[in-house]
Design a protein around this nucleic acid. Structure first.
Lengths: 198, 198
DNA sequence: TTGACGCCCTGTACGATGTATAGAAGATGA
DNA sequence: TCATCTTCTATACATCGTACAGGGCGTCAA
């Protein structure tokens, strides 16, 4: 037998999530994609949260962490870019990660990398820990927030009438790529300056 | 009649969300808290997403935006701190905001403030727009990511065995307050430096 | 060969959820 | 007095995650 395994389930579930979004990401939909009864999934997956974790890991693992160049600054930027691209390749993923509070082995490996790069930057351990924690959380947070922001409709003119500044924000469509690049550089530079100053 | 109105509903729903979390934030639970049939809510609220928006706005409005001091740097820090404290006062709120993609009048007012402060910093309009967008998204993202991170259990030793750096991250409990303060300063300083350099 | 066992899957069912639909009770205005 | 509108109730439905109880089939001891 053994038609099902974690790998096949993860792949099918990721496809379902991509195609139908968070709302369509359903035990029944995943089962149907595998031509199987919903309950069959439960022999390979504890519950839906575990399925979500599987999906997130599958998506994260899809493209490997960027290879280190030895230049810690470049490598930190690359990590930020990689984080963003992983999320953007599968838009529903951010929602799923949030909805089910996924924190998996793949996330740990990212943490590992962030910290090791910050240590290469010459910061003492305590500072590197702080830098790694805050920078990785901020980057992930920004990426997911950006995704949410992009999904927004422009507020009604009535709502913007009394908000002359906010209105500007919605008039010119932002260059998200450039914004992200700028912010990740500003963040890393700012953290390094502050933490090495002591 | 008119026992119900948006205000009473928002207050009750916020209380329910605080007490029972996202999973317990249910039309039926809110209705029960108001001693009313679930369907009664639908005369004041289009659907559950609208209820969620109501709750988020109620929580945000609970304490007003920090009064500007005229020092844009201090004022931006204060905005970041205020954002974090608003979220932390009602832990379930971050989840609700995510789950229902809430973007309301209150959010617009925050945007308005961010942008106005960045303009006071002397940046030209285009740069101020970028700064406001990225900094507010990053701060909100960080705050929500921090909340998720805090809710985590320490990974099993087995999972950390091959990750010497990541293990350090879980050995010493972080000082989240200090981390946040540091990051918001680094972020604002970094953005300002980069954007005024052109 | 047989029969017991274990794995993987199916079938059915339950409680919970959001909400559509259809009244009912009381206020309001003609 | 009667029609109408507002506000709330009652009932019902589709859909969800998943508990529970088999059923088909491979493996292996006798």
């Amino acid at each position: 037998m053994a038609e099902l395994d974690a790998g096949r389930i993860a792949a099918a579930a990721l496809a379902v999530a991509d195609a139908r979004g968070l709302a369509g990401f359903t035990m029944r939909a995943v089962a149907e994609a595998l031509a199987v009864t919903p309950m069959a999934l439960y022999h390979h997956v504890k519950d839906k949260a575990a399925l979500a974790a599987l999906v997130v890991d599958a998506a994260i693992g899809e493209q490997p962490l960027p290879a280190p160049t030895g230049d810690w600054r470049e490598d930190l930027w690359a990590m930020a870019r990689w984080t963003r691209e992983s999320r953007r390749a599968h838009p529903a993923l951010a929602h799923i990660r949030r909805a089910y509070g996924v924190w998996t082995q793949a996330s740990l490996q990212m943490t590992e990398r962030w910290l090791s790069l910050w240590q290469q930057s010459g910061l003492p351990l305590a500072a590197a820990l702080t830098a790694a924690r805050t920078s990785s959380l901020a980057v992930v947070g920004l990426v997911e927030e950006e995704a949410a922001f992009r999904g927004l409709d422009r507020p009604a003119d009535a709502a913007l009438a009394w908000l002359p500044n906010a209105r500007l924000m919605f008039d010119a469509p932002p260059d998200y790529d450039a914004d992200f690049e700028l912010l990740s550089r500003a963040l890393i530079a700012g953290l390094h300056a502050r933490l090495s100053a002591g």
